[in-house]
């Protein structure tokens, strides 16, 4: 029923597992369908340096997950986004017609994980999780920015980071939601 390549990936799936503090996580499928896939990606400088997955599903679903993880590893974000279900099925030496949807799921889960990474990155830029002085990502509020070693000061009223040499918050002008002026620490 399955090609040798599918069976080989099913029997010895590559990259099984979870990535601690993954840059992006993508989950597709649901218990009703019978297939669930979760992909984890680690992305450094736009390259997928690590890809891992967990899959609940048939032989095809497991083989597809394994193949997708192998295909995506080392690729740029753009390249990985271009991996299509047809590519995956082709690499596996074909899938039975009624199992083609499994290859959709694999590519979808990978793309979802990358989209999650992009959204987080975007969110990070918006929410000020980056150092306002050197634009590198920073740890939670109150911790000095490691790359530029400046202690980031936050507006006591709205919590947003303050510009480097200013006491005035450009977001709220130092007033909280009720319009009261907050005391500077």
């Amino acid at each position: 029923m399955y090609s040798e390549k599918v069976m080989e990936h099913f029997r010895n799936p590559r990259n099984v597992g979870e990535i601690d503090k993954a840059d992006g996580v993508g989950e597709v499928g649901n218990p009703v369908c019978g297939d669930m896939m979760t992909f984890y990606v680690k992305i450094d400088n736009g390259i997928l340096t690590d890809v891992k997955f967990k899959t609940f599903g048939c032989g095809a679903a497991i083989a597809v997950s394994s193949m997708v993880s192998e295909m995506a590893k080392g690729k740029t974000v753009d390249e990985a986004m271009k991996i299509s279900n047809a590519d995956v099925a082709k690499e596996l030496g074909g899938l039975p017609p009624n199992k083609l949807h499994c290859s959709n799921l694999g590519a979808d889960a990978l793309h979802k994980a990358i989209e999650d990474y992009l959204a987080r990155k975007n969110e990070g830029e918006k929410e000020g999780c980056r150092c306002p002085y050197c634009d590198e990502p920073v740890a939670p509020p109150g911790v000095p920015c490691v790359p530029c070693n400046v202690k980031i000061r936050y507006c006591p009223a709205c919590g947003k980071p303050l510009p480097k040499d200013s006491e005035e918050c450009p977001e709220c002008s130092g007033h909280d939601a009720a319009g009261r002026e907050a005391a500077h620490q």
Binding site: P31, M36, T55
Partner: peptide, 16 residues
């Protein structure tokens, strides 16, 4: 070991 449902169960979440 491969199953996300089992991972959820292990973390105390409802896998179903």
């Amino acid at each position: 070991e491969i199953s996300p449902l089992y991972a959820k169960f292990k973390k105390g979440e409802d896998p179903y």
